[in-house]
Structure formats: structure tokens, C-alpha cells
Design a binder for these strands. Structure first.
Length: 353
DNA sequence: TAGTCGTGGTA
DNA sequence: TTACCAAGACT
């Protein structure tokens, strides 16, 4: 057991002032110290998008959303289907449904101004403990204890905590609380997360560049890459299903809005069978001469693999579907579909040319 | 509490 | 190919 120094928030803030990443939703630390503050709407939007999602994936969506809906009032007035289409491809679609609910709650219950305290933020749809703390700290500079996956990893290593997640979350939160400063808590919150994202990474951490290396017990003990420990994950089962892609002779596509709850809730998709581990019963949405595309669409969700059979048909104008609605070609953009549905579309295009 | 809920990058 | 992982929330 080697000697370590005491970790100080000031050491991390000094590092952050020199190395803070430039991000579309971030106000640079130098500007914050000049009194420039971020728009809480943009901070909230970024935090929702960043839930379980990488910065690289979020950037273009954040730009598109804030350009199209510059204020929370603009977003509150948006049509549900426009927001869902704009979110397509980003995943975890409950976030998009809650994004709208939250924008409307802030507009109607708070006069279009986000509340600044943790308790009020926590009541908003889609805002949990982490996001409430992050918005309160980053947008309003309140000294909240912000604990995300990055902070958990940094704390586990800094204090050489070997109890596996999620059981260790309370003690890791205590460590995080013990370090959270009263000065510049907003910058500090972003600094710990930046440290986790760029230095104290899950694999191959750059300990040589870490401002907290002298204080890091895992580094001193050589256990860095073993931490944080996690409970083993269950293997994903494979499910199978069929998607039916019907094209009318005028070019319109037969699509169906999925129910709000459940997988891909609220999103547009192809009518199809259930997705089950044993082959499901056929569910043709319209009477037609169906042809099976040779290859299948493969996609992996959070808790299962999917092998999707794609069937296509060309149907005449006068035939009514049993499920779904025909969407005219000018109104159909494959980019409005969740990725698995877009994969099925791409396969049909290449497989039936 | 443990399961549900996406996607793309990476080793 | 496979598994892991990313600024979690909800039930």
C-alpha cells in the first residue's frame, strides 16, 4: 500500500480550466468566470440526450433540435410526430416522449423557466437523480452531488473501491459528495465527467495525464483497470420476427405508429409479427403476394438480439390495409425510422432491385 | 429490486 | 463475431 495525497477539487478545476472540451451546450470555464451562463433549456436538452449516449452521437441531434426549437416554448408547441421523427436513430425513445412532456410542463407550470432546485427538477418527466443534479449544478451553479457512470468509475478508482456496482453506488456517492466544492460546483461537475470521459476511461486510462494521479489509490495499488467492478451481465437471447414492407403502385409505403409504451414506443415502423424466441405466427397487414428477401436484418437491442425476416409486396391502389396507413412517397423519409426499421428498409431496397 | 429500454463505436 | 460500453429513467 503506497502513500497517496488527498484529492482536491481545486486540482481538478485547474486541470479543467486548461483542458475543458468545447461542446455545443457548454459555456467555457473562462466565460463562466466572466459571468456568462448557459441557457438551462440547452443544458437540460443535452443532459437528456447524453443519457447512456456518447457525445459523438449526441452532437448533431442537439444542433438539429436547438436550431428547430430554440426555446422550451417552441418545443412545447411542437407536434409529437415531428419530435419523434427528429429523435429517430438516437435510441431510448421514452426520452423523446418525456422530452415533450417535460417541455410542456415547464411551459405550463413554470412559465417557460426551468426550476433551479433539485427537488423541483426531479418532478419533471424524464428527469431522475442524475439529471436533476446536473442541471442544477451546470445551469445554476448549485453545489449538487452529480453522479453518473463517469463519476462512479473515477471514485471507484480514486478510493480503490472493490465492491461491485450497483451495490457500491451509495458509497461511491458518499465519496463524490465529500469532494464536491462550494466554489464553482458547475465547472467541477463537468470536470469530473470530462476526466472520466477523456482520462479515466474504462479501458487504457491515461493515468500519466491525470491531475488526481497522486491521490489515486487504485493507481498506487495497481488495480486501476480492474475497477469499477460490476456484477456479471446476463447473455442476450435471440428473438425472431417478420417485417412487412408493402409498397403501393403510386410509391406510398405502408407504415404503422407503434404504441407509446414498450419497445420503440411512439415510433413509426413497418407492420409485423411479434418478436419472440420461437417463430411467431404470420401477421400480414394487407392481402398481397408477399416475397421474402433473401438476407435477414440483424439488430441488437439492450436485452436481446433480433433476426428479422423482411417480406415485400407491391399492392394495387384499391386495396385497403388491415393494419397501418399508406404514407405518400414525398412524406416518407427513412431517417424518420428507428434504426432497426431503417435496416429492414435498406435490405428491401437492395434485395428486391 | 431487477427488468426494460437503442444505438454505434471499439477491442 | 461477440461483448462491452456511453453525462440513466422508469416501473
Amino acid at each position: 500500500m503506497s502513500d497517496v495525497t488527498q484529492p482536491k477539487a481545486a486540482d481538478l478545476l485547474e486541470w479543467y480550466d486548461r483542458h475543458a472540451r468545447t461542446l455545443p451546450w457548454r459555456v467555457a470555464p473562462s466565460d463562466r468566470q466572466k459571468g456568462v451562463w448557459p441557457d438551462p433549456y440547452r443544458v437540460w436538452m443535452s443532459e437528456i440526450m447524453l443519457q447512456q449516449t456518447t457525445v459523438a452521437a449526441v452532437k448533431s441531434y442537439f444542433e438539429a433540435f436547438t436550431r428547430r426549437w430554440p426555446s422550451v416554448g417552441d418545443l412545447a408547441a411542437a407536434k409529437d410526430e415531428d419530435v419523434m421523427a427528429a429523435w429517430a436513430g438516437l435510441g431510448y425513445y421514452a426520452r423523446a416522449r418525456n422530452l415533450l412532456k417535460c417541455a410542456r410542463a415547464v411551459t405550463e407550470d413554470y412559465g417557460g423557466h426551468f426550476p433551479d432546485d433539485h427537488a423541483s427538477l426531479l418532478t419533471l418527466p424524464g428527469v431522475g437523480r442524475y439529471t436533476a443534479a446536473a442541471v442544477s449544478a451546470i445551469a445554476f451553479d448549485h453545489p449538487e452531488v452529480v453522479v453518473d457512470g463517469n463519476v462512479e468509475r473515477v471514485m471507484a478508482r480514486l478510493f480503490d473501491e472493490h465492491q461491485p456496482l450497483p451495490k457500491s453506488k451509495p458509497v461511491l456517492t458518499e465519496y463524490a459528495a465529500s469532494l464536491t466544492p462550494d466554489e464553482r460546483p458547475g465547472c467541477y461537475a463537468q470536470a469530473v465527467m470530462d476526466l472520466g470521459a477523456t482520462i479515466c476511461t474504462p479501458k487504457n486510462p491515461a493515468c500519466g495525464l491525470c491531475p488526481w494521479r497522486p491521490a489515486c489509490r487504485a493507481f498506487a495499488n495497481g488495480t486501476t483497470t480492474d475497477l469499477p467492478r460490476k456484477e456479471p451481465k446476463k447473455r442476450k437471447p435471440t428473438r425472431v420476427g417478420t417485417a412487412y414492407l408493402a409498397r403501393r403502385v403510386d410509391g406510398a409505403w405502408l407504415l404503422e405508429r407503434r404504441p407509446d409504451k414498450g419497445l420503440l414506443g411512439g415510433m413509426l415502423g413497418w407492420p409485423g409479427t411479434e418478436w419472440t424466441e420461437t417463430p411467431p405466427t404470420e401477421a400480414e397487414p394487407i392481402s398481397a403476394e408477399w416475397k421474402t428477401v433473401q438476407a435477414e436484418a440483424r439488430h441488437t437491442f439492450t436485452h436481446f438480439h433480433l433476426r428479422l425476416t423482411v417480406k415485400t409486396a407491391l399492392v394495387p391502389m384499391d386495396r385497403a390495409p388491415e393494419r397501418g396507413d399508406f404514407i405518400a412517397l414525398p412524406d416518407f423519409r427513412p431517417s424518420d425510422l428507428p434504426t432497426v426499421m431503417r435496416k429492414a428498409f435498406d435490405l428491401a431496397q437492395s434485395g428486391s432491385s
